[in-house]
Design a protein around this nucleic acid. Structure first.
Lengths: 343, 343
DNA sequence: CGGGCTTCTCGAATCGATTCGATCCGCATG
DNA sequence: CATGCGGATCGAATCGATTCGAGAAGCCCG
């Protein structure tokens, strides 16, 4: 300890912390000594142990990091979160979520890393091994877009309501044959049309809710097409399958904008005009410049606010309070990719 | 401490660490007691203090997180890095880089967070305030794509050579009027054509090197167009400016694929055919499905390997070794967006 | 039956900062 | 001159795990 330098032990602490009664002259002396000894300031580890706080918020991505980051939704929420946490002196530790089914279900970091609070970015069913682990470790947790649970703080959006509104928008346009392209059902990540049996095994809450929104509006999709991830290429694959078969739907509702843009690309590829031949709608309200000249019809969710809401939940948990579940509003945003149903 | 439960103090440690001489019966007894007391295992903070290691690698994004994540290059490198670090028991702590010029140059986390090693993902000139801070704190650092410095480990790619090769490819196709769209020059983030005076103030190494590659091939760009960030919309803006003026270039070399795809979109928008009317080339070798049917001509860099190389450098630093500077190879990948110069 | 050896368990020190209470000093007041 | 008071500084305990060396118990063999 650099205290040997100037004079004392605990006084040095006062000198650095700034608070507490200390003569200016003494502080100066201590700081000068620290400089000359190339002492870089208090060791964070000591402080953390004493305080019982690490200042770290573990963010468990719902997926391999690579895929998670390719999803602008995660990225923008994460950015909003980091912006809220920064001023609180909290840092974001990335914890990989469930990998491929071959890997262990829980990343070793989740078992051993120091974190004051955890944020689970996706999924999170009741018996989720991730939540299981966090519960065992006693780490307060914020669950984003997951299955509501008593001991876990929740932040989400009104995706069910938004999806219903979007569906009614298409009904108003006269569409009757409506297909839907969904997010993954579970960690298994299969893809293709999902029959009733498969649909009854739908595990991930977010997928289920968005699907329920379509049903709420009174629509039974001609096809429920499951994808292994929310990426443009998965949407394109789904689009090719849906739009090249017989009984082509007149509208395709996608559970994310990336999937929807993939469907638009597939339609272009097949020589179909959007929206004259087929309407396509997404979810998230991303600003996809490269889809020009099309502007996706979508349900916009407030991404930065979502990050901020998560941040607020985190700080509530740090103060020992369990925050109220947050459900942020969404807004239908009509673009150029939906239009009247072809006759 | 849960040691009061079963029997002893230090024995409990042995029971959990698994190593060391301990009777199976005793271990069982301790673990059982831990379970019944809902003790969640050793507190990481204590372990970290004792070990003098936090197990945390701070990754300083060269930009606001939002922008950083919208860049697939950063994301994929980060993913490769996390994959390498995971098995070593190391976690990635996100540290926001320089924000807008209005914000403080250095994030508070950089000053106070516990990290064993830091990775600076971008930029990093000699007098970079980030490196300055890390140096003062004595944190070993890996600099990615930055200005070489004696006390900092370096990982980079041969972007200068790759750019030269790409430029020669265009020369072989008969192009003479070649413009170039660059990454930002500095934190200032201005945009527009950069004259000689402006070019002499180019601060960021990566931009400088890629520009130098063009010159190496013997080409003086008709215009050097500076952008504020490597995003599609910035490329589109640059493309509109370059392609709608008089003396339109016959080829545009972009310092990133996202910029290049923006230029392609701008060309489409202006009714120009790619590559018949104008050739466009990028850098990074991303897989941009949504640009279909075009496939971008680009210089591919090994993103996952780059992440792995950074991980290797990190673990070398943790062992007290200063790793050799790594320069990963790149490869020209011809797509459909470049072709013979129009006559 | 005792010496020597192995195997396990325990105490105590250590990592580094924070914090509470105690002490000490100088100055002012009765 | 003595007492009181306030401000500054210091000691010691504490956070929780790890680790080394010492000691104790049990066992084998002479």
């Amino acid at each position: 300890m650099a205290a040997a330098a100037g004079v004392s032990v605990s006084t040095a602490s006062l000198a650095f912390s700034g608070s507490g009664p200390i003569a200016d002259a003494t502080r100066e002396r201590v700081l000068a000594a620290a400089r000359s000894l190339a002492y870089a300031g208090p060791n964070p580890l000591g402080r953390q142990l004493r305080r019982g706080r690490s200042g770290i918020v573990g963010v468990i991505m719902g997926d391999a990091l690579r895929r998670a980051f390719r999803d602008p939704v995660s990225s923008q929420v994460l950015d909003g979160l980091a912006a809220t946490l920064g001023p609180l002196g909290l840092g974001v530790l990335l914890v990989p979520g469930p990998h491929d089914a071959s890997q262990p279900a829980v990343d070793p970091l989740l078992e051993s890393a120091a974190m004051d609070v955890a944020v689970q970015m996706w999924g999170g069913t009741t018996d989720d091994p991730v939540l299981e682990t966090l519960r065992r470790r006693g780490t307060p947790t914020v669950l984003v877009e997951g299955t509501p649970q008593p001991d876990v703080a929740a932040v989400g959006i009104d995706d069910r309501g938004g999806m219903a509104e979007l569906t009614r928008h298409l009904l108003d346009l006269g569409h009757t044959r409506i297909a839907t392209v969904t997010l993954p059902f579970d960690r298994g990540r299969s893809s293709g049309p999902a029959d009733a049996a498969r649909q009854s095994h739908l595990v991930w809450e977010i997928t289920r809710r968005r699907l329920a929104g379509v049903t709420d509006a009174g629509v039974t999709p001609t096809t429920v097409y499951e994808t292994p991830a929310s990426l443009v290429e998965n949407g394109a694959a789904a689009g090719r399958a849906l739009l090249s078969g017989p009984d082509r739907p007149t509208a395709v509702i996608c559970q994310s904008d990336l999937l929807a843009s993939g469907v638009v690309l597939a339609a272009r590829e097949l020589g179909l005009r959007v929206p004259q031949d087929v309407s396509v709608a997404g979810f998230d309200g991303l600003d996809l410049a490269w889809l020009a000249p099309d502007v996706l019809t979508s349900v916009a969710q407030p991404l930065a606010e979502k990050g901020a809401a998560i941040g607020a939940a985190v700080s509530a948990l740090l103060e020992g309070r369990m925050p109220e579940p947050q459900v942020l509003p969404v807004a239908l945003r009509a673009g150029t990719t939906t239009g009247p149903a072809p006759r």
